[in-house]
Amino acid sequence: MSARVAALAAGAIAIALVLAQDVYPATPLYHGWQYALALAIALVVVLAYANGARRGDDGVVGRRLIVAMLGAAVVAVAGLAAGLLGPDTAQVIGTPGTVTPVPALGAAAFFAPADADAIASGGAGVILRRHNAGEIVLGPPSRRVLGESLVYLEARPAAYVDVYDENGAHLTVTQPTNASFLSPVLLFHDRQRIGALDVPLDTFATPARHRIIRALYFSAHDLAQFDHAGAQLDSSRPGLILSASDDQGRSLGITLAPSGRGIVFAGLRIRATIGTYPALAIAAAPPTWALVAGIALFMGGCIWGVLRPRGRIARSRQQRAQGA
């Protein structure tokens, strides 16, 4: 393999790696030392070729490819700098209606209040309030680059739980095991493995009726697997598998609560509205300008390098004419 091919391959790989970091920022692979080492090796290969090309080692084409190498180097350095100077990958989970400090951004995140409809639609957003700076409103599809940080929303499973007594009177829902004690919105911080499935888990209580209820979140797809096993389940929408106990720890049974449909269970009427609520995701990201400029230089340099030099074209025409 010639030095030119190796350098072009290294440049392309570096760009692909950094682009992947920008497109899929939450993947842990990009925050390992192996990723940084790969980028650094690519950078060394690219710069070594550019240095040789500058001395004329690869002729006119090599000199032209210096532009492409410069572009690849810009992207690789941007990717390395984002990893070194940017924040750690983090996910901030906030209860609807609360404010959570985000030191990595020097900001506070206000998680929008959410009722059952907002959970069902998954339309709730997050507002970032920075000291001496404006507010940044993040909706579900949006993402913003703040310095070396990329911030965006990740939809997490959530359920809004309404509980009534046998007379239809609304009951207080608490979450004794969570920081958000007085929230009827389950955010499923934990997970539980059931056979091949790894499903989100949360717990809530109704102190007025001394019930503690564990809720396992099942997507419609997961429920369909149970359907195949012969169970008579509504697998067209997500549901919660609820298991209840009293405050003495005695089991009071297990049932399925399909989203939005009221059920009677353990002496309670429960309606769980299942959907999503956003978590604020923070990841290191290369600056957009560096990506755009670097890729443009790399592409431009490659195209320029492929074009035959004018002097050579002229000489070749002259030779053909003389031959004729």
């Binding site: 842990p28 925050h31 390992g32 030392w33 192996q34 990723y35 940084a36 080492l37 650094a40 390395l80 990893g83 070194l84 940017g86 924040p87 750690d88 990958t89 983090a90 996910q91 901030v92 989970i93 906030g94 209860t95 609360t98 959570t100 400090p101 969570n178 920081a179 958000s180 955010l187 911080h189 923070i282 290191a284």
Partner: peptide, 17 residues
Amino acid sequence: VFLSGCYNAPDPGGAAS
């Protein structure tokens, strides 16, 4: 190698109250 060692490790984050 030094730069690779400095690379950020992922932080699981979490809720705060």
